[in-house]
Write a protein that binds this DNA or RNA. Structure first.
Length: 574
DNA sequence: GCCGTTTTCGGCCCGACTGTTTTCAGTCG
């Protein structure tokens, strides 16, 4: 049993305990254990097996959780979880994802109406019965119905890092066969509906057996000679594995990478040249001779095009651009020289400045900026003016030579409701880098939100707009505002737009990146890491930037240290 | 349930809003 899985079982139980109104501190301990276990570099199952070691030596794990771990590893569940599931059906957990409802309301709904599924909940709202419960009314019914619609829309889709992880696990499972993800994962879409994996190599057919017998496979949907489909993990991501002969590998990659729209245009182009393109190859119509198939680039080349990066294949002008030789030279992960949005224990991060720096250095960066939260985020223990100034001083006085890379003092400063910054100017002036972010009042009218952001940009110390649309993938939509106007103003003032690389956000997305670029904006790509392991999420931000047609020169944290400092760091009077 | 001890139990993060009230519980971040 993997740590992720163990953590999930405990987290679910904590949710159910909250609905059951159990002791909140006990629940917190469970939740704390979840984060510890998720982030722990060794498998809990292995530590439990080793008589020389004790899981209780891990901070956050005491006797109680140790017992729980033992039970989980032994039989896949534990006593309190079983008790909770007796009381509430597991579908009750789903309802926690609906905005406006918390554990108390869910418990009440269950008691009064036996509501335990999203469908039940929807019916109760439509029948206007929710409002008959104490402290609930028509507005809440509306809000819940809206949230249900959003929830349904995102159901069956998965974050990119999850799909990526599964793809990697299957690649390892099927080694030494060559496994390549195609589909939306290869194109770098921010969420993935199902995972397409192409497999080639000698004896590829046995790969289908290995795959369908894999312990993480939950349900086999179909299995033939060349293809198997299965739901993987309890999350139920559908994975399609196809085996292919070498000679059509390139054609299959091209075909299954998509997008559908890109492929339609490409096949039409082929037809005009007397060729037909399918998943087996590019074939000349006149004599049915296959002219390309093994190599993807060769297919594009035979169609008179340079190879087009998968991230661009959305039929958003990339085929014309390719034909006319004006494809961008896309940014690459290796171009990134720094990560300039991350948190430490000073606010809501999980590691120290030194730990973050050490891990960033291991990734080859030349510099980072530590940007903890400001005081408006009380729950995140945000910094007030005094702590902020002290932090800047501490960074200035630090002996950075030990760290092996340059650390900038920064802040992710809240943009308040009225567009003013959460901390006073004289405090912000002490910092190397100020990111301004919206974390509250996200349901403002578009015009109001536009004014708020324009006003924020009047602050002379603001250098970057953090996660500019506030979306949380599969959970919360972007807040509306006049993006073009804000982007134009940012460009004018030399304020960069952030591409937040967290797989939960990936904000900005491709369309807005292209709009912002057309307005003259420059960008930063950062992970918003709250833990050293999040630093590797940079690759998803880079994918998003590539989907937005960005080149290295568009992104400020590709610059070498000295130039980056000149471009973005330091005091400016406006 | 964990931690850190003043070794046997008390402390553990909180401010603000929202929708419902008519003084505040529940949700959110």
């Amino acid at each position: 049993m993997e740590n992720q899985e163990i953590a999930r079982l405990i987290a679910e139980t904590a949710d159910l305990m909250e609905i059951a109104a159990e002791d909140s501190f006990r629940i917190r301990s469970y939740r704390n254990a979840v984060t510890v276990i998720e982030g722990y570099p060794e498998r809990m199952a292995d530590i439990l097996k080793d008589p020389a070691r004790k899981v209780t030596d891990i901070p956050g794990i005491g006797k109680g959780i140790a017992h729980v771990l033992g039970e989980i590893v032994e039989r896949g569940s534990f006593e309190r979880r079983d008790q909770m599931l007796e009381k509430y059906p597991p579908t009750a957990l789903e309802m926690l994802k609906i905005q406006g409802l918390g554990p108390k309301s869910i418990a009440m709904l269950f008691e009064h109406f036996r509501v335990s599924t999203i469908d039940d909940l929807e019916r109760i709202c439509q029948e206007q019965k929710l409002r008959t419960l104490p402290r609930m009314g028509a507005k809440l019914e509306e809000k819940v119905l809206r949230s249900i619609a959003q929830y349904r829309q995102s159901a069956g889709r998965f974050h990119i890092d999850f799909a990526d992880r599964i793809a990697l696990e299957i690649t390892e499972l099927l080694a030494p066969l060559k496994v390549t993800p195609a589909g939306s994962l290869r194109r770098g879409r921010e969420t993935v509906g199902d995972l397409d994996l192409l497999v080639t190599g000698p004896d590829a057919t046995s790969a289908l057996d290995t795959f369908t017998k894999w312990t993480r496979v939950h349900e086999v949907l179909a299995k033939g000679v060349n293809k198997a489909s299965a739901k993987v993990g309890v999350e139920g991501l559908q994975v399609d594995v196809r085996t292919l002969p070498d000679e059509s590998y390139g054609a299959a990659m091209q075909y299954f990478t998509g997008s559908k729209d890109h492929n339609v245009v490409l096949r039409n182009r082929a037809l005009k040249q007397g060729l037909t393109l399918n998943e087996y190859g590019l074939v000349r119509l006149s004599d049915e001779v296959k002219v390309a198939g093994a190599d993807e680039a060769e297919i594009y080349s035979m169609l008179g095009l340079p190879w087009i990066a998968p991230e661009l294949r959305e039929n958003h002008g990339e085929i014309d651009a390719a034909a006319e030789g004006r494809l961008p030279v896309l940014l690459e992960l290796g171009d990134m020289r720094g990560d300039i949005h991350m948190h430490t224990r000073e606010s809501d991060g999980r590691a120290s400045l030194e730990e973050m720096a050490e891990n960033a250095r291991a990734l080859g960066y030349e510099y980072i900026a530590i940007t903890d939260h400001s005081k408006a985020l009380a729950m995140a223990n945000g910094l007030d003016e005094e702590r902020c100034v002290n932090f800047a001083r501490k960074v200035r006085e630090m002996d950075q030579s030990q760290l092996g890379l340059r650390v900038f003092s920064g802040l992710e400063c809240d943009i308040r409701k009225d567009g003013t910054m959460d901390l006073a100017d004289d405090a912000l002036a002490e910092l190397d880098l100020v990111i301004g972010s919206v974390h509250s009042y996200m349901n403002m009218e578009s015009a109001e939100m536009t004014d708020r952001l324009l006003r924020a940009m009047e602050c002379p110390y603001l250098k970057v707009i953090g996660h500019p649309t506030g979306r949380v993938l599969l959970h919360r939509d972007a807040f509306p505002y006049d993006f073009e106007r804000v982007a134009a103003e940012a460009a004018k003032r030399g304020i960069a737009m952030e591409i937040n690389a967290s797989p939960e956000r990936l904000d900005l997305h491709a369309t807005l990146i292209r709009i912002a670029k057309s307005k003259g904006c420059r960008f930063t790509i950062s992970t918003d890491a709250h833990h050293p392991k999040h630093l590797s999420n940079m690759r998803y931000g880079v994918k998003m930037a590539r989907r937005g047609w960005l080149e290295s020169k568009d992104v400020l944290n590709t610059l070498p240290l000295k130039e980056f400092e000149q471009a973005l760091v330091g005091r400016r009077t406006g």
